[in-house]
Amino acid sequence: MKPNRGWTPYLFVLPAFLVFAVAILLPVLATFGLSFTRWDGSGPLKFKGIANYTRALHDSVYISSYWHVLIYVVATIVLEVLLGLLLAGAVSARPGTTFYRVAFFIPVMLPLVVIAVLWSFVLNPDFGLLNAGLDAVGLGGWKRVWLGDPNTALLAISVISGWIFAGFYMAIFYAGFARIPKDIIESARLDGAGEWTIFRRMKVPLVRGITEIAVLLCVTGGIQVFDLVFVLTNGGPYNTTEVPTTYLVKTVFRDQDVGYGSALAVILTVVIALIGLLYSRLRRKTSDVEF
């Protein structure tokens, strides 16, 4: 390939770069800058040093929002990734499972807000499908105000999240399983290994690389959960489902506290970046073979 002349390459890259720089790079830098100020979004800027960061460290709601998101992430690793893995194992072990695969994947297609509104009706304490269903099967005693009770609200959000995304992880694992050479599986089968053994002893270890990516996706995506929480509880009851993103939006848009909100955003970004970095370090050490 001969080196290109002068400005042509830039003409090809520039349009994309301009849009990217104006809409993302510049705002990232500006957010970082704003995090050291006190600003209400329109008036004069006041430099405050690291005051916003020390305030965040003493902000009990903000600190607790990380605990909530941690619980949510742990729950979704089980309800999304692990469940997805099991489903993939189930549908790939037999023929004629297209119907199930299509069904489980449907929620991934729909806007999260739409699903959240739908589920807020399913969980509605007065006429919702769930409480009515419990009544119908004689389990009326299990009825709850699912989203208004701090003991169940976060769990309910996690379960809805699992309902949506288990199918997504199933699709990933299913594709992974399909790339395992068939003769390996067949010969194990001929040796009399059961499907569960094949799944646990062969398939799961062979898609380890995919599992690691899936967990990383689940963790970094989970920390940024917003749509579901915003619609279902908006952090309530009394901040018990507050997650970093809902608190951030309240701080910036309700309280007009742009400087402090920027600091909270920077902290969140750093947390996500650290997890990503740490995770890729660990992965490089433990796995050389990626399937």
């Binding site: 304490p125 007065d126 105000v145 208004g148 009394y238």
Partner: peptide, 11 residues
Amino acid sequence: NDSVNSISDNE
């Protein structure tokens, strides 16, 4: 009502 904290003013 038990649902006080989970429903909107209109509900």
